[in-house]
Amino acid sequence: MQWTVYLSGEIHSDWRQQIEQGAEAHGLPVKFTSPITNHEASDAAGDVLGSEQDNFWRDHKSAKVNAIRIQTLIKNCDIAIIRFGDKYKQWNAAFDAGFCAALGKPYITLHDEAIIHPLKEVDAAAMAWARTPEQVIEVLKNIISV
């Protein structure tokens, strides 16, 4: 079986590449998916529907266009990895975690100890909490039979 793993969250570091490379190094049968990770492209996703004078409506349209991809990929994944960085607040990642929980999709959170408290509800619904991409790879190795 090939597993589909959705990678959600923080876009300012190489954690996705570390997990993808680790899975490949261990020969795990995994296909990775993710939201649009280019900040400007994500913000402009709704611009094709017409320009807006008010930033609220631009963001609103782009969020809806982005949601088509995000909701489809989450619904079709076997497990999600949701990364929270400490520099920016990833409200979208928290929303993805809630969406996973509502669908009964297992997810693993990935974040530092410094933000345990603000993520207590998100972590409580997660199947695991990892501090490093290497720990995520170890969890994946344990759940995926090769």
Results as ranks from 00 to 15, higher is better:
101 A>L: 08
24 E>K: 14
76 N>M: 09
19 I>H: 04
133 P>G: 06
140 L>M: 10
131 R>F: 04
106 P>I: 02
100 C>Q: 01
33 T>K: 03
58 R>P: 04
14 D>K: 09
74 I>R: 03
97 A>L: 07
81 I>P: 01
24 E>Q: 15
49 L>K: 07
102 A>G: 13
67 A>F: 08
4 T>I: 14
17 Q>D: 12
78 D>N: 15
92 N>F: 05
28 L>F: 06
45 A>S: 15
42 S>Y: 10
125 A>L: 14
33 T>N: 03
59 D>G: 12
142 N>Q: 14
106 P>V: 06
20 E>K: 13
46 G>Y: 07
89 K>C: 08
84 F>L: 08
22 G>S: 11
120 K>Y: 09
124 A>C: 03
99 F>H: 11
137 I>S: 03
51 S>K: 14
112 D>V: 02
49 L>H: 14
72 T>H: 11
18 Q>P: 00
10 E>R: 00
12 H>I: 00
1 M>W: 01
41 A>F: 13
66 N>G: 06
46 G>C: 12
39 H>W: 09
115 I>C: 10
127 M>A: 12
143 I>Q: 05
14 D>W: 00
64 K>G: 03
129 W>E: 04
52 E>N: 12
5 V>M: 02
22 G>I: 11
116 I>M: 08
135 Q>P: 00
111 H>K: 04
95 F>I: 15
26 H>M: 01
135 Q>Y: 02
104 G>Y: 06
32 F>G: 06
107 Y>S: 02
35 P>A: 15
45 A>F: 11
99 F>N: 06
17 Q>T: 13
97 A>H: 05
26 H>T: 01
4 T>Q: 03
34 S>C: 10
121 E>L: 14
32 F>K: 01
145 S>F: 09
81 I>M: 02
97 A>W: 04
21 Q>C: 04
46 G>S: 11
61 K>R: 15
94 A>C: 11
80 A>P: 09
3 W>L: 05
65 V>H: 02
56 F>S: 08
146 V>W: 06
108 I>K: 00
26 H>A: 08
73 L>T: 08
50 G>L: 09
66 N>V: 05
47 D>H: 11
36 I>M: 07
2 Q>P: 07
72 T>D: 12
42 S>L: 14
53 Q>S: 14
133 P>A: 11
90 Q>F: 01
41 A>H: 14
54 D>Q: 11
132 T>K: 09
52 E>S: 15
53 Q>R: 05
68 I>G: 04
15 W>H: 07
88 Y>F: 13
91 W>H: 02
102 A>R: 10
69 R>P: 00
12 H>A: 08
28 L>N: 04
84 F>W: 09
30 V>L: 06
113 E>S: 12
140 L>K: 07
